[in-house]
Simulated assay, not measured.
Amino acid sequence: MKTLVLGASGATGRQVVEQLLLKGQPVKLVARSLASLPESWNTNHQVTIIRVGISEVSVDEMAELLSDCQSVVSCLGHNLSLKGLFGKPRNLVAGAVELVCKAIEKNARQQAVKIVWMNTAGSRNNDLNEKQSVAEKLVMALIRVLVPPHSDNEKAAGFLRHGVGKNHAGIQWVAVRPDTLIDEEKVSEYELYPSPVRSALFRPGKTSRINTAHFMARLATDNDLWNKWQGQMPVIYNKTH
């Protein structure tokens, strides 16, 4: 069985694919453009590339894509451009979450499909009553209005928490929340918490993309780790020494 990776052309998504391949996991990719994908993937028999934009995929088409996959890993996000931040689709991430879940339900397989979704440390898990200061609440209210991608991430998390829940017969999920993403060449030590241990606005931590990818790939392939975090929104930070 394979892992379907969404957002594989992005900086973190590419790292996810590489980490899965290092674990010997066959990977299926959905990408609109092949230009940003490594050339080596085109000749790797462990990689299947479907050239299409996620917003163009129907529920039936997604169900077919998932027919031989036991997990979905997504690093979908909005491009940091005016069009990416304020253009359509506004609900790229939340829409993709709902699409994948509807497709899984349509397939109605006996074994639950795992969803590993990259979110952000700025998105709260209200199941845990995560605290925010008055200043944080005010700033976050402005960000929701002025930065549509943040609201999109919150909607995606809300759909997993309420639309799917923790006891769905066919869908299990983990929403991974890195803090400020940085580039590093190698996997390093990192720390995992159920909730943020620092303010994502006023005292943010750092999380390398490769560490985020490493953790997400482990979730997709390590059942013990999965059982520890299933139905939760773990926050990941690079370990500071």
Rank of each mutant, 00 (worst) to 15 (best):
M1Q: 05
L6K: 07
L6F: 13
G24R: 05
A31N: 10
S40K: 13
T48M: 03
T48G: 02
R51C: 04
V52M: 02
M62Q: 10
L65S: 08
L66R: 05
G77L: 07
H78Y: 07
H78V: 02
L80H: 11
S81K: 03
G87I: 08
P89N: 11
V97I: 14
V97T: 11
V100C: 04
V100Y: 02
K102Q: 14
K102W: 09
N107Y: 01
Q110L: 10
I115C: 10
M118K: 09
G122R: 03
G122W: 00
L128P: 00
N129Q: 14
E130S: 04
Q132W: 13
E136V: 08
V145Q: 04
S151D: 14
D152E: 03
D152C: 06
F159P: 01
F159Y: 15
R161E: 08
A169H: 14
G170C: 13
L181T: 10
L181M: 11
L181P: 00
D183I: 13
S188W: 06
S188R: 09
Y190F: 15
E191R: 13
P194L: 15
T207E: 00
H214Y: 14
M216P: 07
A217Q: 08
A217M: 04
R218K: 10
A220M: 06
N223I: 13
L225M: 13
I236T: 05
